[in-house]
């Protein structure tokens, strides 16, 4: 019971922080909201017994990637954006809210239709580093794991091809 209360509490925090990322005027405030969002997600992962993913989330996202983000923002010296033309923005916001609302209604309708049952029992050792390592390197997920490294390579080549000064 406490776990599910905490889960929804952290989920709420993640959503509020996520909304704050896109509504803040100052890039630094956005970035810091993103940190809060990442931490809240990490807490959610803990609630879901995915301890390893939670630790990695904090180390990689909330740690390394955010530091990089903030460095870039400070290096580029991005200032707060000026006052925005209200007419266009409110129209866009309206469309966005309408679409989000539609999806929200769909999700609620779906949730309502699902038969509520207790979550399945976890096997012992679920979510442990050993189990994850076994699945990634010795089990079913070997190929996707390797394919992701190919994906990262492609992304890297792309970044170099498009960004380097002379071709």
């Amino acid at each position: 019971m406490t776990e599910s209360v905490l889960f929804y509490l952290f989920s709420l925090a993640a959503i509020v922080a996520g909304a704050s990322v896109i509504t803040q005027r100052s890039p630094i405030a956005s970035a810091l909201s993103l940190v809060v969002c990442f931490f809240a997600l990490a807490a959610d992962y803990v609630m879901l017994d995915a301890h390893f993913v939670a630790v990695v989330q904090v180390l990689v996202y909330a740690g390394a990637i955010m530091v990089l983000f903030i460095f870039v923002i400070m290096l580029l010296n991005i200032r707060e954006t000026g006052p925005t033309p209200t007419g266009v923005i409110s129209f866009r916001a309206g469309v966005g809210l309408a679409v989000a609302g539609l999806l929200g209604v769909a999700v609620i309708a779906v949730l309502d239709s699902v038969v509520h049952k207790a979550p399945a029992e976890l096997e012992p050792g679920y979510g442990s580093i050993k189990a994850i390592g076994g699945a990634l390197f010795g089990g079913a997920y070997l190929l996707p794991f390797e394919a992701v490294s190919l994906l990262l390579t492609v992304g890297m080549i792309g970044a170099v091809v498009l960004a380097k000064r002379e071709v």
Binding site: L143, P144, A147, V154, G158
Partner: peptide, 19 residues
């Protein structure tokens, strides 16, 4: 034969084509 593999392959293809 697995949606996860489908998604990763799709991304490998798409990112290469974007560039």
């Amino acid at each position: 034969n697995d949606l996860m593999m489908t998604f990763i392959s799709l991304e490998v293809m798409s990112i290469a084509v974007y560039v």
